[in-house]
Computed example of a mutant assay.
Amino acid sequence: MKIYIYILITLLILGCKPEKKSGNEKLQVVTTTTMITDLVKNIGGNKLEVQGLMGAGVDPHLYKASEGDVGKLFNADVIVYNGLHLEGKLEEVFEKMRHQNKKTIAVADAVDKDKLIGSEYFASNYDPHIWFDISNWELITESLVKQLSELDPKNAATYKENGTQYLKKLAALKTNIGEKIEVIPVEKRVLVTAHDAFNYFGKAYDFNVVGLQGLSTATEAGVKDVQKMAAFIIDNNVKAIFVESSVPKRTVEALQEAVKSKGHEIVIGGTLYSDALGNEGTPEGTYLGMYKHNVERIVNSL
């Protein structure tokens, strides 16, 4: 990994030449995850040129920048990323670029530490999947509006208006989601998924969240993990388990077979979007649509 980081940083410094910009050109923003790309586009509208590094189904825990990505990062006016070591293999790159006076924004910085969920599995010591609490996403929206306005004052009014409208949509989503989840008795709110990405969702809506692979997808679940989870499912009479769009489904299928081998039935309740949105141009390709999709799958299955 260190060799990879060294090569990438070297390319950034020596292999690319920044493009000169006129005063009339749009602010060039490079984003990492699809959730952040969607948010920045909602705030920026047609006033920003936004390039997302990661597409639908891409796992940010394991993502490596391509040569083309290196050029995008080097020529960006600002880089917006999640932080809390979600983009593990890129974290040192962002740190190096900060030392070279490249403007970088870690959206997680907008969330107070007391609102973060602790984790011993990340170097940050916090669970990085902050977008699954809509309240966090509201804080992040407000922070991005402020920071983009400071970077691009001539379009500040647009960012503020777009941000206000998006915050209204987030508030409506929060109300809608809360009403849907109310139909599930609290004792039935057990969410079993491929990896432990939904703790913020669980905390917000009283779910017991259990993931086969823990918080990161860097290490696959082993046979003991599957057997332990199968026992948990049987003991708690869980009705459904879920695969994730950015994680191979084989471990969840193995879990289903392990439960069945013990004489119990368990269904796969469908695919949830965890570390990436759906395909661009679909409802699930937006944060709002992704969240609605996930909750509908969970409610219908549990």
Rank of each mutant, 00 (worst) to 15 (best):
K2C: 00
K2R: 14
Y4N: 03
I9S: 04
T10D: 14
L11K: 10
I13Q: 08
G15C: 09
G15R: 08
C16G: 00
K20A: 07
E25K: 04
E25A: 06
K26H: 06
T31L: 11
T32G: 06
T37G: 00
N46V: 03
N46R: 13
K47P: 01
L53V: 10
L53P: 08
P60I: 10
P60Q: 00
H61W: 14
L62T: 14
A65F: 12
S66G: 13
D69K: 05
V70D: 01
A76E: 02
V78L: 01
I79P: 05
Y81L: 06
Y81A: 08
N82I: 13
N82R: 01
G83L: 06
H85I: 11
H85D: 06
E87R: 02
K89N: 13
E91M: 11
F94P: 10
H99Q: 13
K103A: 05
T104P: 07
I105Y: 03
A106D: 10
A106L: 08
A106I: 04
V107G: 01
V107L: 04
A110Q: 02
V111P: 14
D112M: 01
L116A: 01
L116Q: 04
I117S: 08
S135V: 10
W137R: 07
L139T: 12
I140Y: 01
I140F: 06
S143R: 11
K146E: 15
T158R: 02
T158F: 13
T164R: 12
Q165M: 15
Y166T: 14
L167T: 12
L170A: 01
A171Y: 08
T175W: 04
I177P: 06
G178Q: 09
K180I: 12
I181H: 03
E182V: 10
V183M: 04
P185H: 07
V186M: 02
V186I: 15
E187L: 09
K188N: 15
D196I: 10
D196A: 03
A197G: 13
G202Y: 08
A204F: 09
A204C: 04
V209N: 00
G211F: 12
L212R: 11
E220V: 11
A221Y: 10
V223R: 08
K224R: 06
K224G: 00
M229G: 07
A230C: 09
A231L: 10
I233T: 03
D235L: 05
N236I: 11
V238N: 09
K239A: 13
I241G: 02
I241F: 02
V243A: 00
E244K: 06
S246P: 09
V247M: 11
V247S: 02
P248A: 05
K249H: 08
V259K: 03
V267N: 07
I268E: 02
I268T: 11
G269L: 01
Y273I: 09
G281M: 07
G285M: 10
Y287G: 02
Y291P: 00
I298F: 09
V299F: 04
